[in-house]
Amino acid sequence: EDAPSSDDLEQFAKQFKQRRIKLGFTQADVGLALGTLYGNVFSQTTICRFEALQLSFKNMCKLKPLLNKWLEETDSSS
């Protein structure tokens, strides 16, 4: 699987934040939901840093598919 470019990540982080707010979730909600869904709880700080593009590139790449999946799950259930 190709690693996303930093442009991709930036684009995704923006879209993710907009969708999250529109769906009415806090950063902490998302962190907990990831724990429920995938067994990895993320702190509010981590989600905040992801949205602000302040995580390392490697961590951004790791989180992106999880957050993407969460969006898909959340979209389909709302």
Rank of each mutant, 00 (worst) to 15 (best):
E1N: 12
D2N: 15
D2V: 15
A3R: 15
A3W: 14
A3N: 15
A3L: 15
P4D: 09
P4M: 13
P4G: 10
P4W: 13
S5K: 13
S5M: 14
S5F: 09
S5R: 14
S6M: 15
D7C: 06
D7H: 05
D8T: 04
L9W: 05
L9E: 03
L9Q: 06
L9I: 05
E10I: 04
Q11H: 14
F12H: 06
A13M: 05
K14A: 13
K14Y: 07
Q15K: 09
F16V: 04
F16D: 01
K17W: 00
Q18S: 11
Q18A: 13
Q18L: 07
R19N: 10
R19Q: 08
I21S: 05
I21F: 01
I21H: 02
K22F: 06
K22M: 09
K22I: 02
L23V: 02
L23M: 14
G24P: 02
F25W: 03
T26P: 00
T26G: 04
T26A: 04
Q27G: 03
Q27D: 01
A28I: 03
D29V: 02
D29R: 06
D29Q: 15
D29T: 04
D29P: 03
V30T: 01
V30I: 11
V30W: 05
G31M: 04
L32V: 08
L32K: 13
A33V: 07
A33I: 06
A33F: 10
L34D: 05
G35K: 09
G35C: 06
G35P: 00
G35Y: 06
T36V: 06
L37R: 12
L37S: 07
L37Y: 15
Y38R: 05
G39C: 04
N40D: 13
N40R: 13
V41E: 13
S43L: 01
S43R: 06
S43W: 05
Q44R: 10
Q44S: 12
Q44I: 04
Q44N: 12
T45M: 08
T45V: 09
T46V: 10
T46M: 13
I47S: 02
I47T: 00
I47P: 02
I47A: 01
I47K: 01
C48Q: 13
C48P: 08
C48D: 15
R49W: 13
F50Q: 04
F50A: 01
F50G: 02
E51H: 00
E51F: 01
A52K: 14
A52L: 07
A52M: 06
A52T: 10
L53Y: 10
L53N: 15
L53E: 04
L53M: 13
L53Q: 12
Q54P: 03
Q54K: 10
L55H: 06
F57W: 09
F57G: 07
F57Y: 15
K58A: 10
N59A: 13
N59G: 11
N59H: 14
M60E: 00
C61P: 00
K62S: 08
K62M: 10
L63G: 02
L63E: 04
L63K: 00
K64H: 09
P65A: 07
P65S: 08
L67M: 10
L67C: 05
N68L: 13
N68K: 12
K69M: 09
K69C: 05
L71T: 00
L71H: 05
L71K: 02
L71D: 02
L71N: 06
E73C: 10
E73L: 11
E73W: 09
T74E: 09
T74W: 08
D75N: 14
D75L: 08
D75H: 15
S76M: 12
S77W: 08
S78F: 08
S78L: 14
S78I: 04
